[in-house]
Design a protein around this nucleic acid. Structure first.
Length: 262
DNA sequence: ATGACTTGCGCGGCAAGA
């Protein structure tokens, strides 16, 4: 029997600012696959040598200044960049990789779904359109009947229990009814949200704002998610939020969340 | 309390984030 596969996702908020934290995380947690978001640099500026020295293969889909996603993997991977459905979209928010596992494969996507604020602007319509494209991609992948994981920063607070102070988010693009309806539409295709498959607990967060002492007050939200195909959900063993990463010096405002699959 | 912080870019303060 193969050892469990550990798949993690983390919005690093600039990989160059967070390289030491990243290397520490790889050593501590030893994920087989780590999806990164907001690397905020071009491919050539990614700290590739440091990450490769830690024993990982690297596939990036970078962008100058903003956005940018990556997939790190112990095993060699085959990556494709960009979310299908809009050839004019210039924002680097999606990368997908095929990861070998024994005689089979696991497909993993690193997702940085648009924030969408302020609502009633083209930023919000871009968010909803991007979610429609993600739904289309998920529909295509489901036809393959494979084990796959869509992991990343969804910028969606699924339910009231996923925020310490939900009243503060009622008019926000992360929690508007239309946003949550699109997220449910994705789940309703037959995907399983990993954390909610294991617990109903409130107060589990993956993001705490830098401002107003949000971390000290535990004023957080849960917006980083791993969505599993039926074949992946069958293999789900455990979910963990690596909350300790928020307590380090110069942290990202997000923490990693990870799963183990049999 | 019209606040509060961190990033990139690039060298002065603005845009973006959530």
């Amino acid at each position: 029997m193969e050892r469990a596969v550990r798949i993690a996702t983390w919005n690093v908020n600039s990989v160059r600012q967070r390289t030491e934290h990243l290397l520490r995380y790889l050593k501590e947690v030893e994920p087989d696959v780590l999806c990164l978001q907001e690397i905020k640099c071009l491919d050539e500026a990614f700290p590739r040598l440091e990450v490769e020295s830690a024993g990982y293969n690297v596939a990036t889909h970078g962008q100058k200044t903003f956005n940018g996603v990556a997939i790190l993997s112990k095993r060699p991977i085959e990556a494709t960049r960009g979310l299908p459905g809009d050839e004019h979209d210039e924002q680097s928010r999606y990368i997908e990789a095929i990861v070998p596992h024994g005689k089979t494969i696991i497909r993993v996507a690193s997702i940085y779904l648009p924030n969408g604020n302020p609502p009633l602007t083209e930023k919000y319509s871009y968010k909803l359109a991007w979610m429609d494209r993600l739904i289309s991609r998920a529909r295509e992948l489901l036809k393959l009947e494979e084990c796959f994981v869509l992991a990343g920063d969804y910028n969606v607070i699924p339910e009231a229990r996923d925020a310490r102070d939900i009243a503060a988010w009622t008019g926000d693009a992360l929690y508007l009814p239309a946003t949550r309806a699109k997220f449910r539409e994705l789940l309703n295709l037959g995907l399983t949200e990993a954390l909610r498959a294991t617990t109903d607990e409130a107060g589990l967060y993956t993001f705490w704002d830098y401002q107003a002492g949000a971390w000290q007050k535990n004023n957080g939200i849960r917006i980083d998610h791993l969505l599993l195909s039926p074949q992946a959900a069958d293999r789900l063993q455990s979910v963990a939020i690596d909350k300790h990463m928020r307590a380090l010096e110069k942290p990202s405002d997000h923490v990693p969340i990870r799963i183990d699959l049999a």
